[in-house]
Design a protein around this nucleic acid. Structure first.
Length: 223
DNA sequence: TTGTGATCATCT
DNA sequence: AGATGATCACAA
């Protein structure tokens, strides 16, 4: 069940292209929800199962032995991403000591299997089709741009300014809340290295980034 | 309880 | 409309 090579993983992903989530769900004993409001991660978790990823939720790529991260990407009828893409949570008390090469962001984004999913709100989850997969690594320019954002944001957090960060910062990568609710708290360090509790946050890729990514690899997304 | 899977819902 | 801030379910 676990793909042994990247090629095998990609081949398996290509076999899903054009199929509906409902038909894939039927093969894995999964019952499609009528709405995603209480099942936001359903499609992503179904695709993990269908492709043989471990269901484990760790701060590592989904296919750790291959170094590949699986990301479903909701797209509209024109193939444009409908949402930003969550990358990882932020260890606020350590972020100041981490380098880009060993960061969670880079470990997850250095190799990604993108799986576009039809995400028109008028479609039931079961009716939505899977698109052609894209096995992607950032180009040198893309990596450089992502690293620039990451270093700016990480620098601020490392200096204790996490609460000064808003979703407006970062050209391609942004920091936004990532929590069960507004009462959730995570340990962070202030400018003097003193611990305090704050809302958990995560790194997200802006939809503009994934839109460019799709446009440069598919014949879509261009007016 | 924390991180991963994300989308929802509100504001601009 | 698009983006930011808020939120929901599940596994380990």
């Amino acid at each position: 069940m676990i793909p042994r090579t990247e090629a095998e993983l990609f081949q398996r992903a290509r076999a899903l292209a054009g199929r509906t989530l409902g038909s894939i769900a039927a093969e894995h004993g999964s019952v499609p929800p009528v709405e995603l409001v209480k099942a936001k991660g359903w499609a992503g978790q179904l695709l993990e199962r269908a492709l043989g990823a471990s269901a484990a939720s760790r701060a590592e790529p989904d296919f750790q032995h291959l170094g590949v991260e699986l990301k479903s990407l909701p797209v509209d009828a024109r193939g444009r991403p409908r949402e930003s893409t969550f990358v990882c949570t932020i260890a606020l008390s350590e972020i100041g000591d981490v380098e880009w090469e060993s960061s969670r962001v880079w470990r997850k984004l250095r190799r990604v299997l993108w799986l576009p999913i039809e995400a028109d709100r008028r479609l039931l989850p079961a009716e939505r089709r899977v698109g052609e997969p894209l096995l992607w690594s950032p180009s040198a320019e893309e990596e450089s741009a992502l690293r620039f954002d990451w270093e700016e944001l990480s620098g601020l957090m490392g200096r204790g300014a996490v609460e000064a960060i808003t979703g407006h910062l970062g050209k391609w990568l942004q920091v936004r809340p990532k929590a069960a609710n507004g009462q959730a708290r995570r340990r962070a360090l202030d400018a003097d290295g003193v611990g305090f509790a704050t809302l958990p946050r995560g790194f997200y890729l802006r939809a503009a980034f994934t839109a460019r990514l799709l446009a440069s690899h598919y014949a879509i997304g261009r007016p």
